[in-house]
Design a protein around this nucleic acid. Structure first.
Length: 511
RNA sequence: CGCGGGGUGGAGCAGUCCGGUAGCUCGUCAGGCUCAUAACCUGAAGGUCAUGCGUUCAAAUCGCAUCCCCGCAACCA
């Protein structure tokens, strides 16, 4: 089985600053990367993110900013990197599609497919909106006007290069049918399957003439063309972790059969990842390239909505990850995104829900448990965690439940469980609640009064153990909190600090 | 008749495959406790399980029909 884990986010398109959706995918990927590092070993995991820096939109945005495209992407790319530092994203590599290592792999892949015949030259015809610089499919046109700017479109045709999709359609259907984890969640898998079964795939135009789009990777076999942005972008998953050798075989430590390859994406780009990308890989295999496999799992998650509406710049309802992290803390932000919304579904984002989650889960359950425990160790044992002296039935029972936790979390975070963060966190919080109940049923304040020192020792010892165990499990989701808990309670002598999560009181004026 | 998912106490969800006490979290109310961040623990109230018909001793769960909501329907990150 796989003993390595390679996880990716999409490379983000840098025509604008990062929003909540970018941070959602990246935080989820980070939690999985951190979790698997602990499970498989620090060096057995590779976590890739990056930026997609070519294409018309960027060309246009840079014109507006009166910068060259390169200057423009250099500037915007930094915003992403800064945000990932802020959010404690532990990526191993950050790829940019303007980097030499990427360009080389893209060009080589195109060459191979051109030689094998799966990429061929033909005429592309379509309805084109010149001001928007966009081709529109017939079905989206409003009469004969651009659906975006409502100006008339014109029929143009030009020489371009195409990838044979139809050739691999049946193979892809078969592959998806045989690999339950290839597309997750299930309903997305069904969507892709029914799309593939009911439509005949037309070949994909993968180039643009240079005069229409100069900001892209030139085709080596046709200098007048650059690659279309998707062909360019998808290959990042390979170009970042490997390269072609002189025999045109792909060499990579992270794209072999010992590695579980996982692409985390938003539902909006499922088609590209679940259809175009696997077919590109199949075409490379067909061309005789060794070392190429299909990814193990493509997981499409849902969207965060604002009052049931999609967040968008034009609606002006976008929530900024920087703002939320500054206002409520990075840890809370990470926790909320992973806990409040089942991974895969859409859900609403609101500050009310955020504060509720914070107060009940973090302040009341976790923070308070840690704090009350610290106080008791201080008060009853002068800050030194006592040793076990004996253990009763209840102690064994609780210890057994704690021992089961790592496996529960592991099962919840598997691909076949849809990387169920909500369940994993519920697994952990079950133990936190158990610890809180344990305090109530033991009533240590009575034990102290009655001088039942042995019982008190065992109680405190187990309580501390419970917090250490749950604290360790929290680490992938809230690394800093786990670190603080470890500092305060990890050794024999405690270090009591401020409460981890001070409650947020509502600002209703008091009468 | 394009394909698919869904409508469960105030809110968000589980349960539906394999019919048989409708469960969880939050909220509300009451009580307990004092180690703790007005926190923690216990208990209670609150649901014709979208609607109608049917199968069955028995249906949230199976069948048919109707209403409503959402996703996908290709080259647009």
């Amino acid at each position: 089985m796989a003993n390595k884990f390679y996880i990716t986010t999409p490379i983000y398109y840098v025509n604008d600053i990062p929003h909540i959706g970018h941070s959602y995918t990246t935080i989820a990927a980070d939690a999985l990367a951190r979790f698997n590092r602990r499970l498989l070993g620090e060096n057995q995991v590779w976590f890739l993110t990056g930026t997609d820096e070519h294409g018309q939109k960027i060309q246009r945005a840079s014109d507006e900013a009166k910068l060259t495209p390169q200057e423009f992407v250099d500037k915007v790319m930094v915003k992403f990197k800064e945000l990932w530092v802020k959010l404690d994203i532990s990526y191993n590599d950050f790829i940019r599609t303007t980097e030499e290592r990427h360009i080389k792999v893209v060009q080589k892949a195109l060459e191979i497919l051109y030689k094998s015949g799966d990429i061929y030259e033909d005429t592309y015809e379509g309805w084109y909106c010149t001001p928007c610089e966009t081709f529109w499919p017939e079905t989206q046109l409003v009469d004969h006007f651009c659906p975006d700017c409502h100006r008339p479109v014109e029929r143009i045709s030009e020489k371009n290069f195409f990838l044979k999709l139809g050739k691999y359609q049946q193979d892809l259907i078969k592959y998806i049918e045989e690999h339950k984890n290839f597309i997750r969640p299930d309903f997305r898998r069904n969507e892709v399957l029914s799309f593939l079964r009911l439509n005949k795939l037309e070949d994909l135009c993968i180039s643009r003439p240079k005069e229409r789009l100069s900001w892209g990777i030139p085709l080596t076999f046709s200098p007048g063309h650059v690659t279309y942005v998707w062909f360019d972008a998808l290959i990042n998953y390979m170009s970042a972790v490997g390269s072609f050798d002189e025999k045109n075989n792909y060499i990579s430590k992270w794209w072999d059969n010992e590695t579980e390859v996982v692409h985390l994406i938003g539902k909006d780009i499922l088609r590209h990842h679940a259809v175009y990308w696997p077919i590109m890989l199949m075409a490379l295999q067909q061309a005789g390239v060794k070392g190429v496999k299909l990814p193990d799992t493509i997981f499409a998650h849902g969207w965060w909505l604002n009052k049931d509406e999609k967040m968008s710049k034009s609606r002006g309802n976008v929530i900024s990850p920087l703002f939320m992290a500054d206002k409520f803390g990075v840890e809370t932000y990470r926790y909320f995104l992973l806990r409040d919304l089942p991974f895969g579904l859409d859900g609403n984002f609101s500050e009310e829900a955020f504060i509720k989650r914070f107060n009940s889960d973090l302040a009341n359950d976790l923070g308070n448990l840690v704090y009350r425990t610290l106080t008791m160790v201080e008060k009853y044992f002068q800050g030194v965690v006592p040793e076990f002296s004996s253990s009763g039935e209840r102690v064994k029972e609780i210890a057994a439940k704690l021992a089961a936790l790592p496996k529960e979390v592991e099962n919840s975070l598997k691909a076949e469980s849809d990387f169920n963060f909500v369940r994993a966190l519920e697994n952990i919080w079950e133990k936190i609640n158990l610890a809180n109940k344990y305090v109530e049923e033991t009533k240590p304040w009575n034990l102290a009064k009655e001088n039942k020192t042995e019982e008190l020792k065992n109680f405190i010892r187990l309580l501390v153990e419970a917090i250490r165990k749950t604290g360790a499990e929290i680490a992938p989701f809230m690394p800093r909190t786990a670190g603080t808990i470890n500092e305060e309670l990890g050794s024999g002598t405690i270090k009591k600090g401020k409460p981890l999560f001070p409650r947020i009181e509502d600002q209703k004026p008091k009468k």
